[in-house]
């Protein structure tokens, strides 16, 4: 979608997953864009909505099953408590590299000027209410609205 001089002016990031590593990927990319002077917006859809739910976003986990990069045998990864243990260990490492927890990260993104949108279709499907979402969310919008916001030169769209 890049036109003009090839510079990136805006990142439109779609987050559809709620595993910790995917949420962090979206947040780091959005935050990194802002600190380079690039605009950034995130569209939270499907399970991605968990990252902006007050009651859920502090309890997101890394996936220990179906994730070969964890190097844990699938049968062991499925034992109750494994996900929590792996998440605990990963969070400890993240704190060492100054990675904020999800709620604090949302605040940083908001203060940095990242726009955050909830997908209306998924929002309705999960029977959510506005008060279930964190205050940082700008609005609940349709996919068409999101495309309209993506208009312009040097806009890139990324699906996570």
């Amino acid at each position: 979608m890049s036109t003009g001089n090839g510079e990136i002016n805006k990142m439109m990031i779609i987050l559809s997953k709620a595993t910790l590593e995917n949420v962090y990927a979206a947040f780091v990319l959005a935050n990194g864009a802002r600190s380079e002077g690039i605009e950034a917006e995130i569209f939270f859809t499907f399970f991605g909505l968990e990252a902006i739910q007050k009651k859920k976003n502090e309890k997101l986990h890394v996936a220990t099953v179906g994730n070969p990069a964890m190097h844990i045998p699938t049968m062991i990864g499925g034992i109750p408590g494994m996900e929590a243990a792996a998440t605990y260990m990963m969070k400890k490492e993240m704190e060492k590299i100054d990675m904020p927890e999800i709620p604090e990260f949302l605040d940083i993104l908001k203060c940095s000027g990242v726009k955050m949108w909830a997908c209306k279709l998924a929002f309705d499907m999960f029977h959510l209410k506005r008060e279930d979402l964190v205050d940082e969310v700008d609005d609940i919008i349709t996919v068409g609205d999101f495309y309209t916001k993506a208009k312009g030169e040097g806009v890139h769209m990324l699906f996570i």
Binding site: R34, S35, E36, G37, C111, S112
Partner: peptide, 10 residues
């Protein structure tokens, strides 16, 4: 961000 717009840390 408002003091140093665009890329504040840079």
């Amino acid at each position: 961000y408002s003091l140093f717009p665009n890329a504040p840390l840079k």
